[in-house]
Protein backbone atom coordinates (compact mmCIF):
# COMPACT_ATOMS: atom_id res chain seq x y z
CA UNK A 1 0.00 0.00 0.00
CA UNK A 2 1.32 3.46 -0.83
CA UNK A 3 0.20 6.87 0.37
CA UNK A 4 -0.50 10.31 -1.03
CA UNK A 5 1.16 13.08 0.97
CA UNK A 6 0.50 16.83 1.05
CA UNK A 7 3.30 19.12 2.29
CA UNK A 8 2.25 22.69 3.15
CA UNK A 9 4.95 25.28 3.84
CA UNK A 10 5.68 28.70 2.35
CA UNK A 11 9.36 27.75 2.18
CA UNK A 12 10.16 25.72 -0.91
CA UNK A 13 13.39 24.63 0.79
CA UNK A 14 11.51 23.16 3.77
CA UNK A 15 9.06 21.40 1.45
CA UNK A 16 12.02 19.87 -0.43
CA UNK A 17 13.68 18.73 2.78
CA UNK A 18 10.50 17.12 4.13
CA UNK A 19 9.89 15.40 0.79
CA UNK A 20 13.45 14.12 0.79
CA UNK A 21 13.11 12.81 4.36
CA UNK A 22 9.92 10.96 3.45
CA UNK A 23 11.50 9.47 0.31
CA UNK A 24 14.71 8.40 2.03
CA UNK A 25 12.83 6.93 4.99
CA UNK A 26 11.41 4.24 2.76
CA UNK A 27 7.85 5.46 3.29
CA UNK A 28 5.70 4.17 0.47
CA UNK A 29 4.72 7.45 -1.12
CA UNK A 30 2.61 7.51 -4.27
CA UNK A 31 1.85 11.18 -4.96
CA UNK A 32 3.48 14.08 -3.14
CA UNK A 33 1.54 17.33 -3.46
CA UNK A 34 3.00 20.66 -2.35
CA UNK A 35 1.28 23.88 -1.30
CA UNK A 36 2.78 27.22 -0.20
CA UNK A 37 -0.13 28.11 2.12
CA UNK A 38 -3.43 26.86 3.50
CA UNK A 39 -5.45 28.23 0.61
CA UNK A 40 -3.41 26.31 -1.96
CA UNK A 41 -3.65 23.22 0.23
CA UNK A 42 -7.46 23.40 0.32
CA UNK A 43 -7.52 23.78 -3.48
CA UNK A 44 -5.47 20.60 -3.82
CA UNK A 45 -7.69 18.81 -1.30
CA UNK A 46 -10.79 19.75 -3.31
CA UNK A 47 -9.42 17.75 -6.25
CA UNK A 48 -7.09 15.10 -4.85
CA UNK A 49 -7.23 12.56 -2.05
CA UNK A 50 -4.32 12.61 0.38
CA UNK A 51 -3.59 10.20 3.24
CA UNK A 52 -1.55 12.55 5.42
CA UNK A 53 -0.79 16.28 5.60
CA UNK A 54 2.42 17.82 6.96
CA UNK A 55 1.96 21.55 7.47
CA UNK A 56 3.67 24.66 8.76
CA UNK A 57 1.69 27.22 10.81
CA UNK A 58 3.17 30.58 9.88
CA UNK A 59 2.26 31.15 6.22
CA UNK A 60 0.88 34.05 4.15
CA UNK A 61 -2.70 34.20 2.78
CA UNK A 62 -4.03 31.35 4.92
CA UNK A 63 -2.01 30.13 7.88
CA UNK A 64 -1.83 26.60 9.26
CA UNK A 65 -4.36 27.20 12.05
CA UNK A 66 -6.96 28.52 9.58
CA UNK A 67 -6.30 25.58 7.27
CA UNK A 68 -6.57 23.11 10.15
CA UNK A 69 -9.92 24.61 11.21
CA UNK A 70 -11.24 24.45 7.63
CA UNK A 71 -10.19 20.81 7.22
CA UNK A 72 -11.71 19.77 10.55
CA UNK A 73 -14.97 21.51 9.61
CA UNK A 74 -15.21 19.60 6.31
CA UNK A 75 -16.87 16.22 6.66
CA UNK A 76 -14.97 14.88 3.64
CA UNK A 77 -11.54 15.94 4.89
CA UNK A 78 -11.72 15.89 8.68
CA UNK A 79 -10.31 12.38 9.07
CA UNK A 80 -7.08 13.10 7.19
CA UNK A 81 -4.27 13.01 9.77
CA UNK A 82 -2.35 16.29 10.05
CA UNK A 83 1.17 16.75 11.38
CA UNK A 84 2.11 20.33 12.21
CA UNK A 85 5.78 21.24 11.68
CA UNK A 86 6.49 24.71 13.03
CA UNK A 87 8.90 27.06 14.75
CA UNK A 88 6.00 28.31 16.89
CA UNK A 89 6.27 25.74 19.63
CA UNK A 90 5.01 27.25 22.89
CA UNK A 91 3.05 24.87 25.14
CA UNK A 92 -0.06 26.97 24.52
CA UNK A 93 0.32 26.80 20.72
CA UNK A 94 1.12 23.08 20.75
CA UNK A 95 -1.90 22.28 22.94
CA UNK A 96 -4.19 24.47 20.84
CA UNK A 97 -3.12 22.75 17.65
CA UNK A 98 -3.59 19.27 19.13
CA UNK A 99 -6.99 20.25 20.56
CA UNK A 100 -8.01 21.45 17.12
CA UNK A 101 -7.37 17.95 15.83
CA UNK A 102 -3.77 17.79 14.59
CA UNK A 103 -2.27 14.37 15.27
CA UNK A 104 1.25 15.48 16.06
CA UNK A 105 3.40 18.55 16.49
CA UNK A 106 7.01 18.67 15.30
CA UNK A 107 9.21 21.59 16.27
CA UNK A 108 11.59 23.19 13.75
CA UNK A 109 14.50 22.59 13.53
CA UNK A 110 13.74 18.90 13.22
CA UNK A 111 15.81 15.78 12.76
CA UNK A 112 14.99 13.48 9.82
CA UNK A 113 14.68 10.57 12.27
CA UNK A 114 12.03 12.32 14.32
CA UNK A 115 9.95 13.32 11.29
CA UNK A 116 10.10 9.75 10.04
CA UNK A 117 9.08 8.35 13.45
CA UNK A 118 6.11 10.72 13.73
CA UNK A 119 4.98 10.03 10.17
CA UNK A 120 4.92 6.27 10.71
CA UNK A 121 3.13 6.70 14.06
CA UNK A 122 0.47 8.91 12.54
CA UNK A 123 -0.13 6.64 9.57
CA UNK A 124 -0.34 3.73 12.01
CA UNK A 125 2.33 1.68 10.29
CA UNK A 126 5.44 0.14 11.64
CA UNK A 127 8.52 1.85 10.33
CA UNK A 128 10.17 -0.70 8.00
CA UNK A 129 13.59 0.10 9.41
CA UNK A 130 12.33 -0.59 12.94
CA UNK A 131 10.58 -3.71 11.63
CA UNK A 132 13.83 -4.99 10.09
CA UNK A 133 15.69 -4.24 13.32
CA UNK A 134 13.08 -6.10 15.39
CA UNK A 135 13.21 -9.07 13.03
CA UNK A 136 16.99 -9.15 13.40
CA UNK A 137 16.77 -8.91 17.17
CA UNK A 138 14.14 -11.66 17.32
CA UNK A 139 16.36 -13.97 15.26
CA UNK A 140 18.43 -14.40 18.37
CA UNK A 141 21.59 -13.56 16.51
CA UNK A 142 24.45 -11.93 18.35
CA UNK A 143 25.46 -8.52 17.07
Amino acid sequence: MSFNVLIVDDSKSVRSVIKKIITISGFRMDQCYEAANGKQALEILSKEWVDVILSDLNMPEMNGLEMLAAIKADIHLQKIPIIIISTESSDERRNAVLEMGAKQFVKKPFSPEYVRKVLYEVIGMEDEKTHERNERDNDGGDF
Partner: peptide, 26 residues
Protein backbone atom coordinates in the same frame (compact mmCIF):
# COMPACT_ATOMS: atom_id res chain seq x y z
CA UNK B 1 14.08 31.12 0.69
CA UNK B 2 16.82 29.42 2.70
CA UNK B 3 17.99 32.60 4.48
CA UNK B 4 14.38 33.53 5.32
CA UNK B 5 13.87 30.09 6.82
CA UNK B 6 17.03 30.49 8.91
CA UNK B 7 15.57 33.70 10.38
CA UNK B 8 12.19 32.05 10.94
CA UNK B 9 13.69 29.06 12.75
CA UNK B 10 16.12 31.11 14.86
CA UNK B 11 13.41 33.54 15.93
CA UNK B 12 10.98 30.74 16.85
CA UNK B 13 13.66 28.79 18.65
CA UNK B 14 14.80 31.90 20.55
CA UNK B 15 11.27 32.80 21.69
CA UNK B 16 10.62 29.22 22.78
CA UNK B 17 13.79 29.21 24.85
CA UNK B 18 12.95 32.61 26.31
CA UNK B 19 9.62 31.41 27.64
CA UNK B 20 7.99 28.16 26.57
CA UNK B 21 4.68 29.17 28.17
CA UNK B 22 4.23 32.34 26.11
CA UNK B 23 2.86 32.40 22.58
CA UNK B 24 4.13 34.91 20.05
CA UNK B 25 2.76 35.80 16.64
CA UNK B 26 5.48 35.74 13.99
Amino acid sequence: DCVKEVANMICGNFLGRLDQTRTFAL
